[in-house]
Amino acid sequence: MTARRHSAGGEQEFAEERASLVRITFGPLIWAMHFLLSYAGAAVFCAKFPHASEHLDLLVWGIGLATLVALAGIAWQGQRSFHQWRKGNEDSLIEEDADGSSEDRHQFLGHAALLLAVISAVGVIYTALPAFLTATCR
């Protein structure tokens, strides 16, 4: 970890960077959990009530609720990443400075986390769409 070479460096900065490394997985993790919940939920539900049309609303609204919660989590994570990336990097919309300082790396991790949050949000919505548009166990 070359971060230590920099003035602000040391153990504390390393710990902080590790936290933001872990944080970039949050978006995809929420997406994965939402995916699992939606598919497993639908599979179990349709196995229990194969001909259910009256109970189906329950499943659809369950998935809808899970989707809202997942999107809220991703949005929260996304805006944190946005700030991490933009702090001290206000001039560009798509790039951070690339001097290789620990500050740049910090920004880069924020940028990566933000992009992952965006793709996770799209993934969550696409996962949920079939529940609303097909709404059948067939």
Binding site: L93, I94, Y126, P130, T134
Partner: peptide, 29 residues
Amino acid sequence: VEALILGGGVGLPVVVLTALLVYGLSIMP
């Protein structure tokens, strides 16, 4: 350039794919 990349590389594909997905799913029933 940045507007082009964000608009054409992220925004447009999301909009187009979402429209196609919604249309495709809507005929599934």
